[in-house]
């Protein structure tokens, strides 16, 4: 074999092949999966939707670049994670929010919740949700002013239900104001809430794409949504006048967005399958408890953030039994 020695062989540990997935690829798939939701928001709110998405995406990317530069680390823009965070944050904001608040939320999301913890892979809390909750606590009014295309309103079905019952009676003409189908598709009166909460159908479409591409596993969305459905179903069965029907719990608010895009965030969820199921159960229980008993009409963000904090613990206590070990071996 005299003619084949010029270039040296490459030496590396096994395995020598790879399935071809990458962090960038995963993030790209998430961006693609968010397209239907972005489209639904754009159809609904037009300029405001684009404004918020543009502001959040650009300030997240800028914040990431600035933070990486100041920390003298390699710029990690290429992995697209900052773009995903920006888009998710935008989808978690009400359409009339001023741009400067959106930019502030983006900086908090990227710099405080992500880069100060060490960047992608080291953050404990979902950056987009951290940004949203920061804004919600800092600017409660702006963050709960919802808009229909032709008018400003202050009530979503969940908050209308909650305020009415705080006064002692169910809201009048609830079913007529918000038909379930409209809420699910995000049309007419039903297209309320943050940009990403408008159409559950669009979120579901994106979620199914993520499942088909194996970016996310089915356990977290199913157990999260299932828990909320079952809990609200039980309460609704006990007292239908006092408790909202489970169908409303699914079709309004950020449950689908949270279950398919936020609670499935790779970094801030447990790595073990049992841990992921417990995580989703916890998210579901907390969401329902906050919606039913808490001070806020919506609890998805808080539920996921709280469970983010519990994720390392869940991992620690759900170490699977390795092959060849007895079940009694303790973690």
């Amino acid at each position: 074999m005299p003619d084949v020695e010029p270039q040296p062989w490459i030496l590396s540990p096994s395995p020598h092949i790879h399935e071809g997935s990458s962090v960038r690829g995963l993030m790209r798939d998430v961006l693609i999966a968010l397209l239907p939701a972005v489209l639904a928001a754009a159809l609904r709110h037009g300029f405001d939707a684009f404004r918020l998405i543009l502001v959040c995406a650009s300030s997240c990317v800028l914040a990431e670049m600035a933070a990486r530069f100041l920390m003298r680390r390699s710029l990690a823009i290429g992995d697209l994670s900052a773009l995903v965070t920006g888009l998710l944050l935008a989808l978690n904001l009400p359409p009339l929010l001023p741009s400067w608040m959106a930019a502030l939320g983006s900086f908090v999301a990227i710099i405080i919740a992500k880069q100060l913890f060490g960047g992608l892979g080291y953050n404990i809390f979902n950056p987009a949700l951290a940004g949203r909750v920061f804004l919600l606590i800092s600017f409660p009014v702006a963050m709960t002013t919802w808009a229909l295309p032709d008018a400003v309103t202050t009530a979503t079905p969940l908050s209308a239900w909650k305020t009415a019952w705080a006064a002692g009676a169910p809201p009048p003409a609830f079913g007529e104001t918000w038909p379930l189908r409209d809420l699910f598709l995000g049309i007419r009166n039903g297209g309320l809430g943050s940009l990403g909460e408008i159409s559950e159908a669009a979120i579901l479409l994106g979620g199914l794409y993520l499942l088909a591409r194996r970016v996310i596993d089915w356990e977290i969305p199913l157990f999260f949504i299932g828990t909320v459905a079952i809990l609200s179903g039980i309460f609704h069965w006990i007292d239908p006048t006092r408790n909202l029907s489970p169908l409303y719990h699914l079709a309004t608010g950020g449950l689908f967005l949270g279950a398919f895009f936020m609670a499935t965030d790779l970094v801030t969820t447990p790595v073990t399958r049992t841990g992921q199921i417990l995580f989703a159960l916890g998210c579901g229980v907390l969401t329902f408890v906050i919606r039913r008993f808490g001070g806020y009409p919506e609890g998805v963000s808080f539920a996921i953030l709280i469970m983010n904090g519990a994720a390392p613990l869940l991992d620690r206590y759900t170490v699977p039994r390795p092959y060849g070990h007895r079940r009694t071996s303790k973690p």
Binding site: P8, W9, I10, L11, S12, P13
Partner: peptide
């Protein structure tokens, strides 16, 4: 002398 390119830790 190094005979190969090393890709690894």
């Amino acid at each position: 002398r190094r005979a190969a390119l090393y890709h690894g830790l």
